[in-house]
Structure formats: structure tokens, C-alpha cells
Design a protein around this nucleic acid. Structure first.
Lengths: 220, 220
DNA sequence: GTCTATAAGCCGATAGAC
DNA sequence: GTCTATCGGCTTATAGAC
């Protein structure tokens, strides 16, 4: 389907070269159509960017809300959030890079809308940390700074993850969960918690929906 | 001095709009010269980017080596590295954003050279973590993943720091040091270490040299 | 060392045939 | 739904006067 080919071409190029460095003609060439054909499926180049970012953020947000609906303990929620975020950013690496890098290319209303989605997602993390702090499970001085630190550390996965790397995605996401639990000093009975103490459900079910309808791992 | 005005103008615009979205004419306008004048001080637009990135990374790397020369204990080195990285990325926010965001705009030899500087810096972090692990002070499963997590979390400061924000830079850098020490589970006598246990020298001395000769905080 | 003028080409987007 | 042809403007970079 032509529309799908165009959006996938835009995704690959935006992730590799950046939105501004990618021309309409580049996208047309990559999608194997002429540049005029693009304008049958969109109004401006920015529309492509907006579609990619909305899809990515909305899927992530939806999955995050499902996690919260299923798990109650803050330490479980945190570990599941880290796994969701890390796995999403690895599997949907290209989309994640675009979402992470190209916000400044947005103009007008969409800029506000995307910012709202992002801060809604941040607020969920904020609530988890506050919950764990109030329950005496976490020990952190400043939840806002901790949220920023955790999000940034997990988002970074999109920048270096490769399916051919030395660590499997499962290893990485478990390891990052452990680091997050350590960062917030999650404890039961004075004992530092790790992800293996938490008896989490299979993580896979939280992010089966791939962003932008990609069938498998996105390629860089 | 014209040269300084041009480089500062490029720095501001690259940080705000991105390298590709910034035109030669934009820089000339911001520096209050004509676009031809720029070419008296550089050969191509990329030269400006390279100069900014080299200056930033070399200064950071030099300061990091000074820290290692003065401190021996891995827990002290780690805390000082976090303070150096966080403070540098807050004070030299614009340079840090450019270094962090515009690597993909580089071509040819400079791309390799900048990548080398970056991985040299990463290696210093790697050695600190390995040292702490071997000394039994840190408890981490995978030092490479921990380095990536720590670096990403500290680098993120450049994206949200503001001198008008709710937390002072000193609060932020101390807080981040504590989070880093918690992440690696730094312990003495079974007791979790915080930065106040470490008796560090005044951090200010490690990053008095501002990047690109900026006199004070860089403005966004 | 800074300017005016301009080259040569790519940019996003559109008109209109089929 | 996809194409060819093209518009007006902006791009990096240069030539050459002062």
C-alpha cells in the first residue's frame, strides 16, 4: 500500500538524517513514488512528522495506562514502566528517535498537543514515585528530578540498542528495571528489591501493538 | 570581536533550531554581519558545528581527567564525574545540546574524530565502574549498561535545566550524585553511600573553564 | 575585513494531464 | 491515484569592489 510505504520511508529518513535534513524528494525516492504523489496522502511534510509522533506517544501512553490498571504496588509499577519504556524504545527504535529528537521541528497547535501527550506520560511516572515514597517503599529526595533521570536513562536505549548487540532485549530491560529499583532504593523489610523479587506478569503483553503498524523490529 | 560573535550566534541557533534548520543567512543576521563575512572565518557551515563540538567535548574530557588525577576512590570519582557532567551540561547548556543532538550532521573525518572523543570519555566512566565493582564498593550486573544509563541520565539535564527553575544547580548536581551512587549501590560497611559521606573537594574548581569562552551561563 | 551582487542548484508545494 | 512539468523562493558558497 502506497500510504504505508510513504510513512515508513519518512520514518526511516527522519530517524537517520533528521526532519530538516530530509527533503520531500528524498522521501519520494525512498518510497518509490514521485514527490507529487506524496501530496495525495498529506498536506505538508510536517504532517508526516506529526503522524509519526502522535502514533508513537499515544501507543506508549495507552500501554502505560494498561500497566497501571493491572498492577497496584509502586515497585511493580515502576519495574513494569521501565520494561515497557525500554522495550518500546528498542523495538520501535526509529519512531522513538524521531519522537525524542524532532520535537523542535513542530510548529503551532501540534507542538502544544505533542507536549501535552508527553507531560501526561511524565505525570504517570511522577505518580508512581510519589506512591512509592508515601508507602515507604522508595527513598528519594526529589521525585521530579528522579522522574527526569529515570525517563532520560530509559529513553536513551533508542540511541544505542541493536538486536545484534551483546545483550538481548530481555536482559537489557530486566537490567534497567533493576537499576531503576536501585536508583529509588526500593526496599521491602530493609532489603533492596530487584525485578526477580516482584513476580511480574509476562512483560510482552503490554507492548504487542507495534507503533505505526510496523510488522517487526524497525531497522536503522 | 567578529569571530566570537559569529560562533556565539551559530551556537545559539544550532541549539534552538538545529544545525540543518539554521541557514548561513540566519547566522549572519544573528551575528550582525553579512553572509559573505562568515566565509572569512570558516570554510563551510559544518566547520562551525565541528568547532563547537570539539571545544565542548575536549573541555569536558580535560576536566574529567583532572578529576581522576585528584581522586582515587571509585565512589568519589563517580560522584565527582556526575557533578562535573551535570554542572557542565547546565552551565554550557547550548553547547551540550548541540553536542548531544547534532552528531548525525557531521560527515567524513570529523565524524570519526568526534566519535573518538566521545568514546574516550565513556571509557573513563567504564573504568570507574569497573574499579568500584572490583573493590566491592559497587554492585552492578553489567557495567556497560550502567555507564550508558548514567551518562544518559546526566546528559538529559541540558534538556530541562533552567537557572530560574525550582532547584538550584548545586541541589541538582548533589541530588544526581546521590541517585548515581544509589544506582550502582555504592556501599561502605553495608551502608548505602550518599555524596555527603564522601568528603569531596569543592566541585567548582573542576569546571571553571567555560566552553567556547562564554563569560557566564549560556542563554537559550 | 566587510561589503554588494550573483551563481547554480535544491527546497516545498501546485497545476493539470491521464 | 500517479504522473510530468514547473513556480517562486531559499540554499550554500563565490567573485570581486572597497
Amino acid at each position: 500500500m502506497t500510504k504505508e510505504k510513504i510513512f515508513q520511508a519518512a520514518l526511516r529518513l527522519f530517524a537517520r538524517k533528521g526532519f530538516e535534513a530530509t527533503s520531500i524528494r528524498d522521501i519520494a525516492l525512498e518510497a518509490e513514488v514521485t514527490s507529487s504523489t506524496l501530496y495525495h496522502y498529506m498536506k505538508t511534510k510536517e504532517d508526516l512528522l506529526v503522524a509519526i509522533m502522535q502514533e508513537g506517544l499515544q501507543t506508549l501512553l495507552g500501554n502505560a495506562k494498561e500497566v497501571l490498571a493491572e498492577l497496584e504496588a509502586p515497585e511493580q509499577q515502576l519495574a513494569a514502566f521501565v520494561q515497557l519504556h525500554v522495550t518500546s524504545h528498542a523495538i520501535n527504535k526509529l519512531t522513538a528517535l524521531v519522537v525524542d529528537t524532532e520535537f523542535r521541528a513542530l510548529t503551532g497547535n501540534t507542538r502544544v498537543e505533542i507536549a501535552r501527550l508527553r507531560s501526561e506520560y511524565e505525570l504517570l511516572w511522577q505518580r508512581i514515585l510519589t506512591g512509592g515514597l508515601e508507602g515507604g517503599v522508595f527513598a528519594i529526595e526529589n521525585t521530579k528530578l528522579a522522574v527526569l533521570a529515570l525517563l532520560q536513562m530509559c529513553t536513551g536505549v533508542a540511541h544505542w540498542y541493536s538486536p545484534d548487540g551483546p545483550n538481548s532485549l530481555e536482559e537489557i530491560s530486566l537490567n534497567f528495571s533493576d537499576m531503576a529499583l536501585a536508583l529509588v532504593q526500593a526496599k521491602r523489610n530493609g532489603q533492596q528489591l530487584t525485578v526477580s523479587d516482584l513476580d511480574l506478569p509476562e512483560p510482552a503483553r503490554f507492548f504487542t501493538k507495534p507503533w505505526l503498524g510496523a510488522a517487526a523490529h524497525e531497522h536503522s
